[in-house]
Write a protein that binds this DNA or RNA. Structure first.
Length: 609
RNA sequence: GCGGGCGUAGCUCAGCUGGUUAGAGCGCCGCCCUGUCACGGCGGAGGUCGCGAGUUCAAAUCUCGUCGCUCGCGCCA
């Protein structure tokens, strides 16, 4: 017989009754009745109840084994007595009567419970991550991650893509984030950068003639964390393809995303769906206007409308808005259907929410019996109210909220208000955020350049390697701020999964674009010389995208925090307290690397923990 | 870097406007229990109330500082 097991903890059933078997696993729960003792033995597959009673001299020994110890038990499978079978357990018809037990790894008293969710906080869960990972929920989440990655790979390979690994020790890439640097021992004073993305490598692969590339690629960015952004490192489904238009990239990625989301749609317990048909494509400017964001949550049915013209009318005397309009500001409106009968507190709460966000308030008009009502209705005469109704599609019983500011802050704040209003609606309301849906969209037509407010100069608004729409002709003949790029984002339920682009594969257009953004040719040569040279030896038109794997898994698992789907995540300060990373380097290591530390005195963290 | 929230037993938390032996549930330890499956019953141990200073006759409670965790802003296209 095998030294550890003949079966796993999920596979024994009535068919095995009478067989002598061996199981290994963790002591999940112990139920000690004095004369009879039950152990639920757990491995990654499931649970099996094991029993010992007074008829055995093992009883005293097993009583002393603490939960989470690893044991090997040998015994005969027997049917559970009639009433005691457990229909909730896959192995609930049978039990193993223990004839022999070996403790493979005893457990100390555990710092938090594994067999149940005792609400233990993140700090302690991460410190003892291996215990946390034994818990059912984490086992499921991490297995989901495996399944999603497998699914993504198969779907990409099914479309003819090949997976290649690109370097981890490399040079700075143009993603715009802070780099992680690694000192080079063989090249004193020089540093590698960890890739923020395999951007240049995948483009070089296209220039190398490999048509369709993908990779589950680790990416490194030294930026602060968020709930949906793990510090330091994350994974992308990085892909690139040659001889393609933007539409071709969409046609590859949409079935991958739809496929993987449909495959795991019921993971969280509710059966979620994706609307039929192609993902909607929303131009960037339209998205900023209608949703106040370039990553709109389309489950929220509320939309934003520009109503500057109403408040600019001579017969409207709302001075607070008029002053802002005269300075070039805009007024944005959000129609909230069927809320006129909401209590005063509904509007007051939204108003104080707005004030909490730093706005003067959230003005509104509600329409009942054909008449406008509310604090600012009196400033808007009937004719102007009619224009407002037309613009916003207002009906009796609706209310409309107003945001007035300069264009960009007005758009962004309207976007926040759009969500705040939706969330404030009572359950079951017609405009409630849809549940059980994955609503995807593409945001397209990003501007190529933007005005840097601080320097008042033109800068790239996104990836400088994107192809401008209209190519060289556009760069030469259009107002730079009007030039659009073949640049796109994919968004699901208000979460940005990825950006992508059709790349600029023509060196002369690249030089021109960088020149317009104020970069001298020498900068381009210096930072991206390798790729620029490669472009001069026959570069195919190409483009790609790189959806975030962690975020996909997070949405599918319905977790609010990305650390719940990462095996060994760092904490918010980019520390791994279990591995004690980062840690100080020894004097020998530093000397070998020709590095001397120059620490700011006040900021040295004390070693006492 | 900035702002909000939190910090009390191994874990999760209660402790109102300051008041004398700081509580609960789970866990842990001991005893009892032959059919449980979140087993049950009885008993027990366990706390410099994050740390430091201040106010006060008196501080878990109020004030200031500091450290840690977390969420958000900046940043990350």
């Amino acid at each position: 017989m095998h030294p550890y097991r003949t079966h796993n903890c999920a596979e024994l059933n009535k068919d095995h009754v009478g067989e002598t078997v061996k199981l290994s696993g963790w002591v999940h729960r112990k139920r000690d009745h004095g004369g009879v003792l039950f152990i639920d033995l757990r491995d990654t597959n499931g649970l099996t109840q094991c029993v010992v009673d007074e008829g055995s001299d093992l009883l005293a020994k097993i009583e002393k084994v603490r939960p989470e110890s690893v044991v090997t038990v040998t015994g005969v499978v027997r049917i559970r007595p009639g009433e005691t079978q457990n229909a909730n357990m896959p192995t609930g018809d049978i039990e193993l009567y223990i004839d022999a037990v070996e403790v493979q790894g005893a457990s100390d008293v555990i710092p938090f419970q594994v067999a149940e969710d005792d609400g233990a906080g993140e700090e302690i869960r991460l410190k003892y991550r291996y215990l946390d990972l034994r818990r059912e929920k984490m086992q499921k989440n991490i297995r989901l991650r495996n399944d999603v990655i497998t699914s993504l790979r198969e779907r990409m390979k099914g479309q003819g893509f090949q997976e290649f690994q690109t370097p981890i020790l490399t040079a700075s890439s143009p993603e715009g984030a802070r780099d992680f640097l690694v000192p080079s021992r063989l090249n004193p004073g020089k540093f590698y950068a960890l890739p923020q993305a395999p951007q240049q490598f995948k483009q070089l692969l296209m220039m190398s003639g490999f048509d369709k590339y993908f990779q589950i690629a680790p990416c490194f960015r030294d930026e602060d964390s968020r709930a949906d952004r793990s510090p330091g490192e994350f994974y992308q489904l990085d892909m690139e393809m040659s001889f393609v238009t933007q539409e071709d990239v969409f046609n590859v990625i949409e079935p991958v995303m739809r496929g993987v989301f449909e495959q795991f749609a019921d993971f969280s317990g509710e059966n979620r769906t994706i609307p039929e048909g192609k993902f909607p494509q929303i131009p960037y400017l339209e998205s900023m206007l209608k949703y106040g964001s370039d990553k709109p949550d389309l489950r929220n049915p509320l939309e934003i409308v520009d109503v500057t013209s109403v408040f600019a009318r001579d017969d409207v005397e709302f001075k607070a808005f008029k002053g802002t309009i005269e300075k070039g500001g805009v007024v944005r409106a959000i129609r909230a259907p069927a809320v006129a009968d909401q209590p005063r507190s509904f509007f007051d709460k939204l108003n104080s929410w707005a004030q909490g966000e730093g706005a003067p308030g959230l003005g509104y008009v509600k329409f009942e019996n054909g008449e406008g009502a509310g604090p600012i209705a009196k400033f808007i005469p009937t004719a102007a109210q009619d224009e407002l109704k037309n613009l916003c599609g207002l009906e009796d019983g609706d209310a409309v909220f107003f945001i007035c500011n300069k264009e960009l802050p007005a758009a962004k704040f309207a976007g926040l208000a759009r969500n705040a209003i939706c969330d404030a609606l009572p359950d079951g309301h017609v405009a409630e955020r849809e549940k059980g849906e994955f609503k995807f969209c593409w945001i397209v037509d990003f501007p190529m350049f933007e005005m840097n407010e601080e320097t008042n100069k033109i800068d790239f608004s996104h990836n400088p390697f994107s192809m401008p729409q209209g190519g060289m002709d556009a760069l030469e003949n259009q107002d730079p701020l009007d030039i659009l790029a073949w640049q796109y984002d994919i968004v699901c339920n208000g979460i940005e999964l990825s950006s992508g682009a059709i790349r600029n594969h023509k060196p002369e257009i690249m030089e021109r674009a960088f020149g317009m953004a104020g970069y001298d040719k020498s900068v381009l040569e210096d930072k991206f010389g390798g790729m620029l040279t490669a472009m001069k030896f026959g570069a195919p038109p190409h483009g790609g995208i790189a959806p975030g794997v962690d975020r996909i898994v997070m949405i599918l698992a319905d977790e609010p925090n990305i650390r719940e789907v990462i095996v060994f995540p760092m904490n918010g300060n980019a520390e791994d307290l279990m591995m004690k990373a980062p840690s100080e380097a020894s004097a020998e290591q530093l000397k070998e690397l020709n590095i001397k530390l120059d620490m700011p005195k006040a900021k040295v963290k004390s070693e006492a923990a």
